[in-house]
Design a protein around this nucleic acid. Structure first.
Lengths: 366, 366
DNA sequence: CTGTTAGCGCGTTCAA
DNA sequence: TTGAACGCGCTAACAG
């Protein structure tokens, strides 16, 4: 429990100056290799460990990124954080992590704290409602580089999924499978849910089907119970939907429960598609068709961008990176092929092939 | 992008000294309310934000806890971290989070970095093998308070599940359900898997059944594929097991797949119990019986303990907190009652009741 | 009540 | 090639 070893201690013991010790430890060229060895030797012997707080005070760099997310137990954010961590740690950055619990006020407080802690940059999945002056009123004037993830706000760098496309390819897939009365269990009022809804509407319209408002029901993103209730509502609508595009896998799972408890068959009587490609989607009662968002990539690209900004890169316009989604068809929506893990190519329709080529588009667009 | 406002700036503008400004901002009693108001007003006006790096340098406190986990995308660790975060943030502590990827070398490196960053305490789920001198050789001599979670090592404060009990109640449950040839898909060589194995063996022996080595097969904790392969091996053993206690839910899920693909019925021909109470266990092809570990509590208690240590609490002996596990019976092991979510009390045997009373034991023992 | 002084541990001048 | 001096922004003595 003795006091931590400092440069000063080393200097005194070696009877040289602090700055020489420091130079030696930094392997600077203008130090004789003799003293270098002596210093290194002594440092190791006493288990010297540089105080990065002190260093940060003078360098004005902490090598720490602040990360604000609504809930790190959701597999989506956990994966994104993992992606962030991978890129950050490779560049010798560390993460100061905050859970905001979807509470904008708490987010604001945590943000202040992270700034006080002098983080070098921020990655934020904001709990603020769309239209909030988050960027203009808060983040921009901090002077600290930041990148938004998942939840989009205008006039800022953003990395996330292409939500409109997610909604579009999910819905289009259901159409291809022959479903016509396609309902949508939408998410709450955040940009992702709005984008997915728009994609859904576009696909429906393109197919020449009318968008019915009573086919659109809102559910919380992360609670299966919400999906279950929402689906119950949908099943009471007349005419009854023959498919549902759920804005998340948890919603889809709740919907599956409702449908099965109602005695209807999936995918025979009702088709279901979710979003997120949850690890256990394939092991459910009915293996769940879904749209993969490549969450790791979202985290990685956000971090690469942030690091560039920290290194001083100037960008004229906010960069918006949309990571390309990918349909993962499984049994829950597969009228046209057996409920195997992957469809055999020879049963896919022309529409299927079109979609396939779409999917080979660039990973991300800027 | 102007320079951040400092105490000095405020002092100059208000034509008073830095220490007065500081005292005013800290609301110390020996400052006239007049100057207090002036200072507060100016600070708000210029959006003054204290530099906590500088403060830490002098107070020798960072209000940051270092957290080292093998993989934050596993739902177990994600939940534990959430528990940590809740307690920490309530006490105004922040988390510096590191993923070690189950690599002991990386863990060592990250540990050094966290110490250099002057964290006030550490919570570690170590990737070191059991028997490694982790505590004696590394953590203890850092001088920084630390608490181990999940993976047990001797001579250190520890908070985790009661793994022996987990193995015991899972296996005993299978015995109660009438299964007799109970196999075990054990986890890798870490303390949790060893404890669960021991609990399994104890229950088997108590039932007067011989422990068969060929009924014990190892699988990675977090890969369903491992559970699947392991189960295939078990199904080739003669006589074929009629039940399996899997050391984790992912292993159990893989096992379920193997069993179902083999054309056997669960729970009729083979019973399955996992560990972890994964969120989606109830939605699987066969709703999965499991043992709940109360992961949030593990994180919370570890953090409370760590904060006490940081506040200077002295403990003679290492404290070992074992959070009490709870059986969550579902269809996959339920020969004796209908595959409903919860068993009706009148069908439970005398053995059941015994177990129930066990479960109401204290939440945690020290 | 307020100001002065002296560090915290390190990096960065500039002299020697 | 090395050392002395200063400052990063803040806190904590002590003096006035």
């Amino acid at each position: 429990m003795s006091k931590p070893v400092t440069l000063k201690h080393l200097a005194k013991l070696l009877k040289i100056s602090v700055s020489t010790v420091n130079a030696a430890l930094h392997d600077r060229s203008d130090i004789s290799s003799a003293t270098k060895r002596r210093v290194l030797q002594k440092a190791r012997e006493l288990n010297y460990r540089p105080n990065l707080v002190a260093r940060s005070l003078v360098t004005r760099r902490t090598q720490v990124l602040g990360v604000l997310v609504p809930d790190l137990t959701r597999s989506f954010f956990a994966e994104v954080i993992k992606g962030i961590e991978q890129v950050a740690s490779a560049a010798n950055y560390y993460l100061l992590l905050c859970n905001t619990g979807e509470d904008p006020k708490r987010e604001d407080v945590e943000l202040e704290a992270l700034l006080s802690k002098q983080v070098d940059g921020l990655i934020v999945a904001s709990a603020h409602p769309p239209g909030s002056p988050l960027v203009r009123k808060r983040l921009s004037q901090t002077g600290v580089p930041f990148v938004l993830v998942d939840r989009f706000f205008p006039n800022a760098h953003f990395v996330g999924g292409d939500d409109a496309k997610i909604g579009y390819i999910a819905t289009r897939h259901l159409l291809q499978q022959g479903y016509r009365r396609i309902a949508h269990l939408r998410g709450p009022k955040v940009s992702t849910a709005i984008g997915r809804l728009q994609g859904y509407q576009k696909a429906i319209r393109e197919a020449g089907v009318r968008v019915r408002d009573d086919y659109i029901v809102e559910a919380p993103y992360h609670e299966e119970s919400g999906g279950l209730e929402g689906m119950r509502k949908l099943l009471r609508v007349s005419p009854q939907p023959d498919a549902v595009f759920a804005a998340s896998d948890p919603i889809a799972i709740g919907a599956l429960e409702a449908i099965i408890k109602m005695g209807l068959r999936v995918p025979g009587e009702i088709g279901v598609v979710g979003v997120g490609n949850h690890r256990y989607g394939q092991y459910l009662r009915v293996p769940l068709s879904t749209v993969d968002q490549d969450r790791l990539t979202i985290g990685m690209r956000a971090t690469s961008l942030l690091l560039e900004l920290i290194e001083g890169k100037q960008l004229q316009k906010p960069r918006v990176v949309l990571v390309n989604p990918k349909l993962v068809p499984r049994s829950s929506s597969s009228r046209s092929f057996a409920p195997a893990e992957s469809p055999s190519p020879d049963v896919s329709s022309r529409l299927d092939k079109e979609t396939a080529s779409r999917q080979t588009a660039t990973l991300a667009q800027s």
